[in-house]
Design a protein around this nucleic acid. Structure first.
Lengths: 140, 140
DNA sequence: GAGTCGCTTAGACCTACTCTAAAGTGAGAA
DNA sequence: TTCTCACTTTAGAGTAGGTCTAAGCGACTC
């Protein structure tokens, strides 16, 4: 049973068969897929599913605040179903591998009032970059 | 005189008229342009300048480490000529306005060893999001 | 049962970016 | 001076990722 589906239902959002497949595909993996990767895997379960539905559905889940849209590298966005967890991302500059990580402090507190330019700051995302063990071994 | 041009010359990188115009365009503003915005402004100064040269040049400056590539929102990358400063970005969710900000701590220190998954972590970028004063006033 | 509204579909379209092949440019060799 | 060769630039075609549109479908309401 998909927890993301439960969260989506709370918004009075109709859970059609297509939307369920897309939500379960997103949530069923520990990596963050691109829209095309979601499409490919969802189509394996529901062959008549269309590209437009995947894109629409992902955008709607982002708008509902239940999925996070990441554009951290390359040309394509990735989708992270753990929108409620407070986590950040660690990316390998070599191979593009992405991991979720948890920092010990809230970055919003690191930003002094006089650096906020009058903004109401509501969120902060940290992107860590470096080399994963495999790429470090390969480059040395 | 462009400081970015000086930094680029240190890499034994040939400063052609085209490259100079692009570098000066990038550095001459306090906002971070997209490639197309750079192209538009650079073409105003050098009408025969081609799209491919702008894209090539921006990518080369990023590869040299003198310009930062940002893909934080929307479909297009933005370019930040202050690659040497240690700063982060604050974005308005309403209008997309982007400001450079300086945080008081180094985010790398807030990532515990057991959250690093064996990576060698070399950089950390924080993206703050919120509403600028104008958008907050408009929405209330 | 008819009307309405939201969802899905195929496929055309768009935008941002990259590639390719050819021409231009300029520093050093002869 | 003239040649040469590597580097740079160019126009325009090509590609990837994403969006739009118009038509069809299916589930509610009256």
């Amino acid at each position: 049973m998909s927890d993301l589906v439960t969260r989506l239902r709370r918004h009075n959002w109709r859970i059609t068969p297509q939307r369920r497949v897309i939500a379960e595909t997103l949530e069923g993996s520990h990596v963050h897929f691109t829209a095309d990767e979601v499409l490919e895997r969802a189509v394996a379960r529901m062959p008549e599913l269309s590209r437009a539905t995947v894109y629409n559905t992902l955008n709607e889940m982002v708008a509902l605040g239940e999925v996070l849209e990441l554009s951290l590298q390359g040309r394509s966005k990735r989708y992270d179903p753990n929108a409620d967890h407070d986590h950040h991302h660690l990316i390998c500059d070599g191979c593009g591998l992405m991991k979720d990580v948890h920092a010990v402090a809230d970055p919003i507190e690191w930003l002094p009032g006089d650096e906020r330019h009058g903004f109401t700051v509501t969120s902060a995302a940290v992107t860590y970059r470096g080399l994963c063990p495999e790429c470090r071994a390969a480059s040395s």
